[in-house]
Write a protein that binds this DNA or RNA. Structure first.
Lengths: 169, 169
DNA sequence: CGCTAATCCGATCGAAATAGTAGGGATTAT
DNA sequence: ATAATCCCTACTATTTCGATCGGATTAGCG
């Protein structure tokens, strides 16, 4: 069981907008490069996010994308439902149309799927982009302070954003 | 996000063996018919279950399949890992080989996937076939007693609904 | 032995989903 | 006007899913 690349990319892009979208719109080109995502593919995904009302777009030169809402108002669950569809480990717990499998209503398996479904939503609906951004910074800070004792200047490291590249390459 | 038909079929077949495999091996043919699963497909799945040591087989005429262990010793989690692969909503939480994504170690997203993973396993590893079988019977009993007030003859209605086995056979 | 009922095993196949690729059009700042 | 940008639609390659097929092996039974 795993989630698709689409979901990863959507999350990363939104997280990028949360952490780096304070001053003006961010272009798809920029995000694609920073996050190492195929440009055209990311374009599609961001377009989806726009249609869903998670981001605003600014067209024309110097355009780009911005979060449409407060980062604290956008949950992981919402993003995931958008890119993956509803979290329904099994059709019989999909909800909207009451999909009756042959065992209903005695099927106890259904109850297990429902439990799983609820516990996933419990986590995802209570995790916002703001949380993620905060945590990313906190973790990075901890890593930095661990790997950089105080007598070394932190500014140099702090100036480097998110460094996708340097750690790996 | 959903689980595959393979998983459903595996669970249903094992549940069938749990509830109806007390006296002698059960054939794939029988299960396929009872559970309304394509015979050839179920054959493959049961074969997988055998290789994984969840069931025993008896070859030749009058052969079939039996649970290899106590139903209380077989968890949902084990079945699911077998048919779906490890529950790793994202590669970076797959565990065994430490798959370093480009954001490590500052990526907070990873933590969310880990939370999700843990909560799923929490449920699935604590649900056994025995639990499921018990619950199925309990629900069926409750449904019958609810839908049949005492002053109406229960026998007539009880013969009618639900139950996989008695009605079908 | 030979028939039959079953498990076993590997190959294949069509449809759908996934992960992109590509081309061009619309909009706007400069 | 032009360049930068979003926007939209179609196409393609690969993988996964769900299932099917042909046949080989094993065992019970008359």
């Amino acid at each position: 069981m795993n989630f698709s690349a689409k979901t990863e990319y959507a999350v990363l892009a939104l997280l990028y907008l949360t952490c780096h979208g304070q001053d003006g719109p961010v272009t798809v080109h920029k995000m694609a490069e920073e996050l190492d995502i195929p440009y055209r593919f990311l374009e599609q995904i961001v377009s989806l996010l726009k249609r869903a009302g998670l981001v605003h777009s600014v067209r024309g030169s110097h355009g780009g994308y911005l979060l449409a809402r407060e980062p604290r108002q956008i949950t992981f669950g919402e993003i995931l439902v958008l890119t993956e569809g509803p979290v329904a480990p099994w059709a019989c717990v999909s909800g909207d149309d009451h999909f009756a499998c042959s065992f209903e209503p005695t099927c106890a398996v259904r109850g297990v799927w429902q439990q799983v479904q609820r516990s996933i939503y419990q986590i995802l609906n209570n995790t916002t982009l703001q949380d993620l951004c905060d945590k990313t910074k906190a973790v990075r800070h901890r890593v930095v302070t661990i790997s950089n004792p105080v007598h070394e200047e932190p500014a140099a490291v702090a100036a480097q954003p998110i460094q996708i590249e340097e750690a790996v390459e």
